[in-house]
Design a protein around this nucleic acid. Structure first.
Ligand code: MN
Ligand code: MN
Ligand code: MN
Ligand code: MN
Lengths: 225, 225
DNA sequence: TAACGGATTTAGACACAACTAAACTTAGTT
DNA sequence: AACTAAGTTTAGTTGTGTCTAAATCCGTTA
């Protein structure tokens, strides 16, 4: 009854779709993300399509049906809430919570998830800044901007850090650029695309690989504490 | 890599062994406990024996090897600790925590379990009174007595309630006989074997089905707060 | 438009974990 | 000692989820 692998496929299809809203989700991209062969992904697509959780046409990738998206959002909700729980209640470093949550997300009864949410006082995002769907799968996406695109002089707040970029989370924590941090972009080099930011009194020069993995929002809300 | 069903079999074999230390654990008893057919249990026994987690001789039941017992104790530890967590931190009624823990026990990284243990301040038992193995699988069994066997007049403390007796947990909670409660046995009827206890100022007459599902300890430790 | 090459699917295999039905063992009873 | 009934194992099937190797498809390039 469980459907462990199923849930991971659905959630990964959801995330891939969210990352590239244009094109359909290809067999290869799912296989790479899941760490399985393309043949395995094809086989799973057939089962998911048979159960009407995805729409699948040979050689044309997949998309989630209504039912599939609902299941995917449930997994994503459990994942991000348990990440918050692990970070905030058990004080586990944010570099580790994604892997742990990947394991736990399939075994959490709804009741437990809902109570965790209440205990955490209904957080909006996971520790990396990704939004947490509510109990009904609803999701509010704030307007974010890539740090790469922030014009010099602007003060912004770090909102989200891509948790999948190798080594980034530890680096970001070290620099004091975690979600919530107030920073100011002081320079942008148009040749090598480096961005210089001032954070907590220190200046850091960030390469493109970092600046396009960090999202920020206008640091304007005065109703913040 | 998971080994979901495996873990449940090992833990159930462990618990059955603990409940009947005399005889070997039979195929049928495991099948009933697990809710599967005897044929399924036999098939699993072969895999577990192949991996040297149990000793299995046809028609003679099974016993855990060293390695098997270590794994089983790990599952039992996770189960009972997460029960404590669900009850104490999330305030889930103790009637429900066993079922939830059964689901969650396979998906909790050791690091998470250890931190939960610290958060809970190293509890000795699950909410039902069963001992929690430590990180190394060590386990201290206090000397307990069945409520059925307590002589009239003796004051005792409820130590453990069998979580598998249908409806018992809700009934026990209603009567105020949860682990930790101080009670006194006032009468024992030698014909119908009913036991009368006084708990929290009220008297209750308990049938055999209840009195042999509750363990107690001498209520003597004055170092109890 | 024909061929190439990368992506995808099919074919065939395997391990796990469950089932039903049939055969077998064992222990207790005539 | 043979019989029988309960318990157990075997045999055969199913569905999931993975793999490798071999076909197949399709967009681009010649
Ligand atoms: Mn997962
Ligand atoms: Mn996250
Ligand atoms: Mn379990
Ligand atoms: Mn318990």
């Amino acid at each position: 009854m469980g459907g462990l692998a199923r849930e991971d496929y659905l959630a990964d299809i959801y995330r891939l779709q969210a990352e590239h809203p244009e094109d359909p989700v290809s067999t290869g991209s799912v296989a790479v993300r899941r760490g399985v062969t393309a043949a395995s992904a094809t086989a799973m697509f057939k089962r998911l399509a048979r159960d009407e959780l995805i729409v699948y046409r040979n050689y044309s990738g997949v998309s989630l049906t209504q039912a599939g998206e609902e299941l995917a959002l449930g997994v994503v909700r459990r994942h991000r809430l348990v990440e918050r729980f692990l970070a905030d209640v058990l004080h586990i470093p944010w570099q580790q919570v994604d892997a742990y949550a990947d394991q736990m997300e399939h075994a959490l009864p709804d009741d437990v998830v809902d109570r965790m949410e209440a205990l955490l006082e209904n957080p909006y995002t996971c520790p990396h800044g990704y939004p947490i769907p509510d109990k009904h799968g609803r999701l509010t996406q704030p307007e974010l901007m890539l740090l790469r695109d922030v014009p010099p002089g602007l003060a912004v707040r770090v909102a989200r850090v891509n948790e999948r970029v190798e080594g980034l989370l530890a680096y970001v924590a070290e620099l004091g650029l975690m979600p919530g941090s107030l920073i100011r972009v002081t320079r942008r080099n148009n040749v090598d695309l480096n961005v210089t930011v001032e954070a907590g009194g220190r200046e850091h020069i960030l390469g493109l690989r970092v600046s396009e993995a960090i999202w920020v929002e206008r640091a304007s809300s005065p109703d913040e504490a």
